[in-house]
Write a protein that binds this DNA or RNA. Sequence first.
DNA 1: GCAAAAGTGTTTTCATTACACCCATGT
DNA 2: ACATGGGTGTAATGAAAACACTTTTGC
Lengths: 229, 229
Amino acid sequence: MPFQKEIYKSAFSVDNVIFGFDGDTLKLLLIKRKENPYAGQWALPGDIVKPTENLVEASKRVLLQLTGVRDIYLEQVHTFGAVDRHPKGRVITIAYYALINIAKVKIEAASFAEQVAWKEVRSLDSLAFDHIRIMNYSLAKLRQDLKLRPIGFELLAEKFTLTELQRLYEVVLEQDLDKRNFRKKILSMGILKTLHELQTGVSHRPAKLYSFDAEKYEVVKREGFIFEI
Amino acid sequence: MPFQKEIYKSAFSVDNVIFGFDGDTLKLLLIKRKENPYAGQWALPGDIVKPTENLVEASKRVLLQLTGVRDIYLEQVHTFGAVDRHPKGRVITIAYYALINIAKVKIEAASFAEQVAWKEVRSLDSLAFDHIRIMNYSLAKLRQDLKLRPIGFELLAEKFTLTELQRLYEVVLEQDLDKRNFRKKILSMGILKTLHELQTGVSHRPAKLYSFDAEKYEVVKREGFIFEI
DNA sequence: GCAAAAGTGTTTTCATTACACCCATGT
DNA sequence: ACATGGGTGTAATGAAAACACTTTTGC
């Protein structure tokens, strides 16, 4: 018997903070809980970790089970462990965050999720447990990371215009950026591929399309580079 | 009964990565374990979290019990949760790190610590559990944080010279810094108090003494400032 | 031909870097 | 008087910020 019985009176869970972008606003993937505690309330998709699974695996499994979302890169944010954060016992939770393109995934409620939906981050005021706090913490980390690394490409379609990319940065950072300076900077990083294709079906001058060049990024990253907007 | 029994077959611990500076090298506070697993090996001071304590509290309690170190600011680094990281069961651990001035604390082994000691970070090659990995991860975070915030003052005496401060940055970052530029920069931040006192007992021109001005730092921080060396 | 967004360069400003000599003290 | 680290300023370079007009398409 490795430890005394009493230490087993605790459990740990994972919670996923999944940000999505619809071209206009920043959204969060939430489930409506079917079961108690907090039945009927919106919550982050999360659940207890099984004894035989690693944390990120657990996070991916839970996300898939509850929302149908699969195959995404999750980054650990922080562990929340206040004694009273869960009404039914001592449950600490490890939060993970990710960015995804809303148009690329289909969401589907299952397990103890009664519904799944994308909700605007700015409109959220209450969530189950301490999930508002977890969301705010993750959002702060997202903003910080967005300034240091080229994340954010995940949130767009495969092919995107520079204006779309700029809009994404503006929405996440909640600040306006200068068009010329933004383009100069993002292009000078050498992590975009010009596709020599144009936007179609717009009633104005069509924009050039770009895609994120993961290989170039790897090279640049190895040489130790700092991404900053 | 909140959850099924089986989820209680897991536990969580905290581990402390305590960096210290002796004016010359960066050190890590370690304990020699008295008990199994890993009896006789050096390890980070850590232990299982009790059901009734918050995580940081647990971290402080464990640190005090094992090493005698009290009253320090601990920052959460990351949670490590590989299924096989603990030989006796499923134990995930939340790592905290801190910086302290070696001369200011007295360390004292107790509980399941047979010894406590400061070991040079550069000389470490193996530790109990996955503690080397945890240390490396924390060191990376320390370096990152050192560039963004004025931590590091914790590692020095109340009164210090600019050369001492520079030496600290050089040791942690493992790079040489230009004396004039370092001084220009650190002074321009307005977070140091000039004490109008001089070093004594040195066989060269005595240096001016400074102290960290926490109030000025709070003001500057509120106005949103970025510390960078 | 008008509306709507795309696309494009230059100047100014500021921060970073590189760099060498005199100063105050103890022995 | 010499050895030791303390202390100081300036010029050159490069990055960031500010800023306005022409272009291309659909209707």
